[in-house]
Amino acid sequence: MKSIISKLNKGFESRVRLGIMSVLMVNDSMDFNALKDLLEVTDGNLASHLKALEGLGYIHTVKQFIGRKPNTSYEITSAGRESFSEHLKALEELLK
């Protein structure tokens, strides 16, 4: 049992992070406000989790202007996709 549990990624322990990764797995990109609405969390909470995930190299930030408004959106990296898939597999293994 221990070996399987150790495969669970500590980086995905929080529900918010799990949510962010799930959304970015199935969407090409998602902006900050859309993520906030989906996950129903506060600005600060979301921002800190996004920062942590970016620090781990799982997502990256795309800053651009839509008209004159600055817009920040997020995309999953290939490392993020791989780690999340492994995390999912480990979760499924545990439940078998």
Partner: peptide, 13 residues
């Protein structure tokens, strides 16, 4: 956890 993952994937697409 799996429930959350599933829900977020569905809700966002």
């Amino acid at each position: 956890d799996l429930k959350v993952i599933r829900e977020m994937m569905e809700k966002s697409t």
